[in-house]
């Protein structure tokens, strides 16, 4: 017996092949449940050890492809967590367990599908030049400027104490300014989208991330968000990156 590797829940009942191959060239197909469908494939049941990053890359690409096809077919989908394989349990087959789960979650899926109807997810990343940001504060802060002047005019011992004070002051002001800027950007983006979710900051090559958010908006209505990002780049002198559209991974 094989397990069932799940991809997503689709809006509308459909029993057919999805028209693409999944992991290990197994057919990806859909099973209807009431007015929903689940998109899935067969998968080996023994505990699977994934040692090779290339295999994971392949799985991620297949997952992305399958979800995009399903998204096109169903219009609205709920992604299932990557790497979910339903097993047999207490003498019940994977398929029985799948339907048990669908039955239990049916109402929650219905609510999610109606909330996500015709919506798409976009990723927004804002990058900053931290050094320029700090230098600007040095130029504008009376307190910091005063401390710098004092340091240059005092003997070394006192200057040492003052520079500790300067460090603390600068840190406080940079944090405060960064927090204010973050709130302003958040408000600006939030006003241009239906839902927004703050994500962890990620390491990126050569650039420092200041803000990372996922946004939910109506499909084909991204111009408001694009405008907000243009304004952010102009007004705050930051770099904004928009990526998508994606199925609503972050809003389920």
């Amino acid at each position: 017996m094989k397990g069932l590797y799940l991809y997503c829940i689709g809006n509308g009942p459909l029993k057919s092949s999805l028209g693409c191959n999944g992991i290990e060239a197994e057919e990806v197909y859909t099973l209807p449940y009431r007015d929903l469908s689940v998109v899935l494939q067969a998968f080996p049941l023994e505990d699977y050890e994934l040692k090779d990053p290339e295999i994971l890359t392949g799985w991620v690409q297949i997952y992305d492809e399958v979800l995009n096809i399903a998204w096109g077919k169903f219009g609205t989908i709920i992604p299932v967590k990557f790497g979910t394989v339903i097993k047999e349990k207490d003498g019940k087959s994977p398929e029985e367990n799948l339907f048990f789960w669908l039955d239990k979650e049916y109402e929650s899926f219905q609510m999610k599908l109606s909330r996500l109807q015709e919506k798409a997810e976009y990723g927004v990343q804002i990058f900053w030049d931290k050094k320029a940001f700090t230098e600007k504060i040095c130029e504008n802060s009376i307190e910091v400027k005063k401390l710098m002047e004092e340091i240059s005019s005092k003997p070394q011992g006192i200057a040492y104490m003052l520079k500790k004070k300067l460090e603390a002051q600068l840190k406080k002001e940079v944090e405060k300014e960064a927090e204010t800027t973050f709130k302003e950007l958040y408000e600006k983006i939030r006003n241009a989208v239906d839902e927004i979710k703050v994500e962890k900051l990620k390491e990126t090559k050569g650039k420092e991330m200041f803000m990372n958010v996922s946004c939910l908006i109506n499909k084909n209505e991204r111009s408001g968000l694009e405008r907000a990002l243009d304004e952010i780049e102009m007004e705050w002198d930051l770099e904004a990156r928009l990526v998508g559209p994606f199925p609503p991974y972050s809003f389920v």
Binding site: G3, L6, C8, I9, L45, D47, Y48, E49, L50, K51, L56, V60, Q61, Y63, D64, I78, P79, V80, K81, F82, G83, T84, V85, I86, K87, K89, N97, F100, W101, E105, K112, E121, G123, E199, K202, T204, S214, V243, F246, Y249, S250, V252
Partner: peptide, 25 residues
Amino acid sequence: VDLLDRILDKGVIISADLVISISDI
């Protein structure tokens, strides 16, 4: 990288007793 960031730890979750664990993901 965008795909990994978006896909790896999102989506709806099924109770652990019904799924096999694919270790190391």
